[in-house]
Design a protein around this nucleic acid. Structure first.
Length: 480
RNA sequence: GCCCCCAUCGACUAGCGGCCUAGGUCACCACUCUUUCAAGGUGGUAGCGCCGGUUCGAUUCCGGCUGGGGGCGCCA
């Protein structure tokens, strides 16, 4: 049985790059009918926060991921929160200590710093000083009240990482120095905790970012020292920003939370992320979740880093918007409509008309955030006209046109789009007016917008009363 | 400084020695449709980083260089 995990540390919102890692793990698990595990790596007691754990879980669920074992649902191999498994790490550390595969290091920060710069070593970092301390040295350190860390005694041997995506990667002996596995506060470091957890949770495949490739020898060595074989590894390419540096604040929205708040649909994000660093052989771009699960393979993963392109995401997103029904979009857009001030009552009252407008505008809606902008003017009581644009329509001629159109609308029967169009076009012809000289100002008067749905269906939907009222108000406005 | 990974249009990618005059998607440009903004349709610009090998033949295999990314923490 294949078992994979996604192991975020709760030190911030779910990052897009991490979301992609989670997604690949998820796809791999589902494809192979395996188990997907969520594990919280909260051993950084300084930065970890419970709220972040909650938000990460929320965002993963929103994205459409589900797991079979995790901190929120439990499982046979729990706990799934590292701070709740501390006894385990201590147990294994003791074992290594007693077998002479690890040792206590009493060095202070200052001492370490000094020794490292003095030595000008090839390998940056610790010089394994505390490997061979005498009894008297140790008792002196104890008397001084020093709190030791536990370091792993790195054996002098080559380590080969057999990576599913990258092939075999060789790290030569001597490129690693003794690293800390237990901090002085008796909490494991990341390197130790991952191994113990992957071991005890029976993880079969470790799928993670390439930033961990260089750390993998450490993990393999720990597995071996404990008498186990390491799981399979697959190091996926990194997600970069436009300038080929790590995706960061500078590049705009970087957390899935932000995209969610900006009105993105989870399915589109899911689809886009899956295509970063992975592709099917047949040029397909739009995939349902099931298709993705069906077609995913680690062999299809690209080795080179991928740049996150919000523009392509947006295009893909608009494709998903088109696939949604008007009523689905309405429901999804409710929070965004409320954000601009429409009450629940108001929205429910106008549900039908909003859905009609959505139907009309659907092709143009790129995100849910566009919904209030493109439908709000239908249900608002007071249209707001941009004073700058109003200026353009202030001519006496326009006043005449508007009042005549008003009268014309008064008598159109039935009040539906073809009839309205017929009448207004005839009016233009009779007065020898260019249609565009009438259509554009009219749209602006009715909606306060210079863009939007087809003018005549817009008028029909607005209704006779509202249309006339708006023209009247607009006339007063341009008389000012 | 040492170690590791990577390298096809601006971006995501297909390509796994001859099917390549390098294909698709986004973006971009042009045309088209059109009462606006879009969307759509049609067409187009644009790429194998460089230098050496191997081979009858290299985008594809090997080496070097260059460039980009990552790691070397009592962060994860």
């Amino acid at each position: 049985m294949i078992r994979v995990r996604f192991a975020p540390s709760p030190t911030g919102f779910l990052h897009i790059g991490n979301a992609r890692t989670a997604l690949f793990n998820y796809l791999f698990a589902r494809k192979n009918k395996g188990i997907f595990i969520l594990r919280i790596e909260d051993t950084d007691t300084e930065r970890s926060k419970k709220e972040y754990e909650e938000s990460i879980i929320e965002d993963l669920k929103w994205l459409g991921l589900s797991w079979d074992e995790g901190p929120d649902i439990g499982g046979l191999f729990g706990s799934y929160r590292q701070t709740e498994r501390l006894h385990l790490y201590r147990e294994y550390a003791e074992k290594l200590l007693s077998e002479g595969k690890a040792y206590k290091c009493w060095c202070t920060k200052d001492e370490l710093e000094k020794r490292i710069t003095d030595a000008k070593q090839k390998v940056a970092g610790y010089d394994n000083y505390c490997r061979n301390l005498t009894e008297s040295q140790i008792s002196r350190f104890k008397e001084e009240g020093r709190k030791p860390v536990i370091r792993f005694k790195v054996p002098e041997k080559d380590v080969v990482v057999n990576d599913i995506i990258r092939g075999s990667v060789i790290f030569e002996a001597g490129s690693l120095n003794d690293f800390v596995i237990m901090k002085s506060n008796n909490i494991p470091t990341f390197h130790f905790a991952v191994v113990i957890d992957d071991l005890t949770m029976k993880i079969t495949h470790v799928i993670r970012g390439e930033d961990h490739l260089s750390n993998t020898p450490k993990h393999i060595l720990i597995f071996e020292s404990l008498g186990y074989t390491a799981p399979y590894f697959a190091h996926m390419s990194m997600t970069l920003g436009k300038d080929r540096t790590r995706l960061s604040k500078r590049h705009g929205a970087t957390s899935v939370r932000q995209y969610r708040e900006n009105g993105y649909l989870a399915e589109a994000m899911f689809n886009y992320l899956a295509l970063l660093g992975w592709s099917s052989k047949d040029n397909q771009e739009i995939f349902s979740k099931d298709e993705l699960i069906e077609q995913f393979s680690l062999q299809g993963c690209n080795k080179s880093n991928a740049i996150f392109d919000p523009v392509k995401l947006l295009w893909m997103h608009s494709q998903y918007m088109k696939m949604k029904s008007a009523s689905e979009i309405f429901t999804l857009a409710i929070p965004f409509l409320k954000n601009v001030g429409f009450s629940d009552e108001k929205l429910q009252q106008n549900k039908e008309i909003i859905e009609k407008v959505i139907e009309m505008e659907k092709e143009k809606l790129k995100t849910l955030l566009d919904v209030p902008e493109r439908t709000g003017y239908f249900i608002t009581e007071n249209v707001l006209w941009d004073p700058e644009i109003i200026k353009k329509f202030k001519s006496p001629n326009n006043k005449k046109i508007f009042s005549e159109i008003e009268q014309l609308l008064e008598i159109v029967e039935p009040f539906e789009k073809t009839k309205i169009e017929e009448n207004i076009r005839k009016y233009c012809q009779d007065r020898n007016l260019k249609t565009s000289d009438v259509f554009h100002p009219l749209r602006f008067a009715l909606t306060g917008q210079t863009k939007g749905a087809g003018l005549f269906e817009l008028i029909e939907l607005l209704g006779k009363q509202k249309s006339i009222k708006r023209i009247e108000t607009f006339l007063k406005e341009i008389e000012k």
